[in-house]
Amino acid sequence: MEDIGQYQLGDVVFCREDLFSDGGLPGYEEGALVAAAGTRGVVVQFGHVEAMPSEEIYLVRFEGEDQNLGLPIGCLPEELTQDETEAASLRAAH
């Protein structure tokens, strides 16, 4: 796997917080819940914020209720974790 920073392509990750559409995501209205805290996903691409090249951003496809992967969502490293125990507690809090 390609080493791209904190996470690698293909890594399983979980979102640390509820992620909502800012209105720019195809298929989601502004304010729609894209992934609830604790949702499992996979890193599919890596890049940087254009205005801040030092800021990493990961494209993650999160599982939907049907267990299928959704569209790629841009996430900052602090919005993700690989800690399954943390993810389980986040899901239980919902």
Results as ranks from 00 to 15, higher is better:
residue 83 D to E: 12
residue 65 E to L: 13
residue 13 V to I: 13
residue 63 E to G: 01
residue 35 A to H: 02
residue 94 H to T: 07
residue 81 T to A: 06
residue 87 A to F: 02
residue 94 H to K: 14
residue 94 H to I: 02
residue 41 G to C: 09
residue 37 A to V: 07
residue 24 G to A: 05
residue 47 G to W: 13
residue 11 D to Q: 09
residue 28 Y to F: 15
residue 77 P to Y: 03
residue 24 G to P: 00
residue 27 G to P: 03
residue 54 S to C: 03
residue 8 Q to D: 15
residue 65 E to Y: 08
residue 23 G to M: 09
residue 12 V to A: 10
residue 90 L to D: 06
residue 86 E to I: 03
residue 89 S to D: 14
residue 46 F to L: 00
residue 61 R to T: 05
residue 50 E to W: 07
residue 65 E to Q: 10
residue 87 A to Y: 01
residue 65 E to D: 14
residue 32 A to H: 05
residue 86 E to P: 01
residue 55 E to L: 14
residue 29 E to Q: 14
residue 16 R to W: 08
residue 61 R to S: 05
residue 89 S to E: 15
residue 47 G to Q: 11
residue 30 E to W: 01
residue 66 D to F: 04
residue 63 E to D: 09
residue 44 V to M: 03
residue 87 A to S: 03
residue 2 E to I: 10
residue 76 L to I: 02
residue 27 G to Q: 02
residue 21 S to K: 07
residue 78 E to T: 00
residue 54 S to F: 09
residue 6 Q to G: 00
residue 43 V to R: 02
residue 62 F to T: 01
residue 78 E to F: 08
residue 65 E to A: 14
residue 55 E to D: 10
residue 32 A to T: 08
residue 91 R to Q: 15
residue 10 G to H: 07
residue 3 D to L: 11
residue 63 E to W: 03
residue 32 A to K: 09
residue 1 M to K: 12
residue 71 L to M: 05
residue 49 V to I: 12
residue 16 R to V: 13
residue 81 T to Q: 05
residue 51 A to H: 08
residue 2 E to A: 13
residue 73 I to A: 05
residue 58 Y to W: 14
residue 72 P to H: 02
residue 73 I to P: 00
residue 37 A to P: 03
residue 25 L to Q: 07
residue 91 R to P: 01
residue 26 P to D: 15
residue 29 E to H: 10
residue 86 E to V: 09
residue 30 E to K: 13
residue 52 M to E: 15
residue 49 V to R: 11
residue 44 V to I: 10
residue 26 P to H: 12
residue 40 R to I: 06
residue 22 D to C: 03
residue 78 E to P: 00
residue 7 Y to Q: 04
residue 17 E to K: 14
residue 92 A to H: 06
residue 8 Q to A: 13
residue 1 M to E: 10
residue 74 G to F: 00
residue 68 N to P: 01
residue 14 F to L: 02
residue 88 A to R: 07
residue 45 Q to N: 14
residue 35 A to K: 04
residue 21 S to H: 07
residue 13 V to M: 05
residue 10 G to I: 05
residue 49 V to N: 11
residue 79 E to G: 02
residue 14 F to R: 01
residue 56 E to W: 10
residue 42 V to T: 15
residue 17 E to L: 12
residue 74 G to P: 08
residue 15 C to I: 13
residue 5 G to Q: 09
residue 62 F to W: 05
residue 34 V to L: 04
residue 79 E to V: 08
residue 11 D to P: 07
residue 34 V to M: 09
residue 88 A to P: 01
